[in-house]
Simulated assay, not measured.
Amino acid sequence: MRNFLLSCLTLLLLFHRSAAAQMYSTADPFAHTFSIVARDPATGEMAVAVQSHWFSVGTSVSWGEAGVGMVATQSFTNKSFGPRGLALLKSGKSAQQALDELLLNDEGRDVRQVAILDNQGRVATHTGKKCVDMAGHQQGNQFSVQANMMLNATVWPAMAKAYEQNARLPLAERVLAALDAAQAAGGDIRGRQSAALLVVRGTATEGPWADRLVDLRVEDHAAPLVELRRLLRLQRAYDHMNAGDLAVEKNDMPTAINEYQAAEKMFPQNLEMKYWHAITLANKQQVPAALALLRPIFKQEPNWRVLTQRLPKVGLLTVTDAELKQILAL
Results as ranks from 00 to 15, higher is better:
residue 120 Q to T: 07
residue 140 G to N: 03
residue 77 T to M: 08
residue 110 D to E: 13
residue 51 Q to V: 14
residue 91 S to V: 02
residue 162 A to P: 06
residue 115 A to W: 07
residue 97 Q to P: 00
residue 96 Q to H: 12
residue 82 G to I: 01
residue 128 G to M: 02
residue 48 V to H: 07
residue 76 F to G: 03
residue 161 K to D: 13
residue 150 M to C: 11
residue 82 G to R: 01
residue 132 V to W: 11
residue 162 A to V: 03
residue 145 V to R: 01
residue 47 A to L: 14
residue 80 S to R: 11
residue 96 Q to A: 15
residue 148 N to H: 14
residue 85 G to K: 02
residue 70 M to T: 06
residue 74 Q to R: 10
residue 125 T to Y: 00
residue 137 H to R: 02
residue 75 S to Y: 05
residue 134 M to L: 05
residue 108 G to M: 08
residue 161 K to M: 07
residue 134 M to S: 11
residue 81 F to P: 00
residue 79 K to E: 13
residue 76 F to V: 06
residue 68 V to R: 00
residue 111 V to I: 11
residue 151 L to F: 06
residue 77 T to D: 09
residue 69 G to R: 07
residue 48 V to K: 06
residue 160 A to G: 10
residue 62 S to P: 12
residue 101 E to Q: 15
residue 155 V to R: 07
residue 123 V to M: 03
residue 50 V to W: 10
residue 75 S to Q: 09
residue 113 Q to F: 09
residue 122 R to P: 00
residue 126 H to C: 04
residue 84 R to C: 01
residue 130 K to D: 07
residue 140 G to I: 00
residue 163 Y to D: 10
residue 98 A to P: 03
residue 80 S to W: 09
residue 78 N to F: 02
residue 91 S to T: 03
residue 164 E to C: 05
residue 50 V to P: 06
residue 105 N to R: 05
residue 51 Q to L: 11
residue 142 Q to L: 12
residue 124 A to K: 01
residue 154 T to S: 15
residue 49 A to Y: 14
residue 73 T to Y: 04
residue 120 Q to L: 05
residue 109 R to I: 02
residue 56 S to C: 01
residue 102 L to H: 02
residue 138 Q to E: 14
residue 146 Q to E: 15
residue 75 S to N: 13
residue 47 A to V: 12
residue 64 G to W: 08
residue 132 V to E: 14
residue 161 K to T: 14
residue 71 V to G: 06
residue 90 K to N: 11
residue 48 V to Y: 09
residue 121 G to T: 03
residue 121 G to M: 06
residue 138 Q to K: 11
residue 159 M to A: 09
residue 131 C to G: 05
residue 124 A to M: 05
residue 148 N to M: 15
residue 130 K to E: 08
residue 123 V to P: 01
residue 112 R to S: 06
residue 152 N to F: 10
residue 105 N to P: 00
residue 67 G to T: 14
residue 143 F to I: 00
residue 84 R to W: 01
residue 119 N to A: 15
residue 116 I to T: 06
residue 85 G to T: 02
residue 127 T to S: 15
residue 83 P to Q: 05
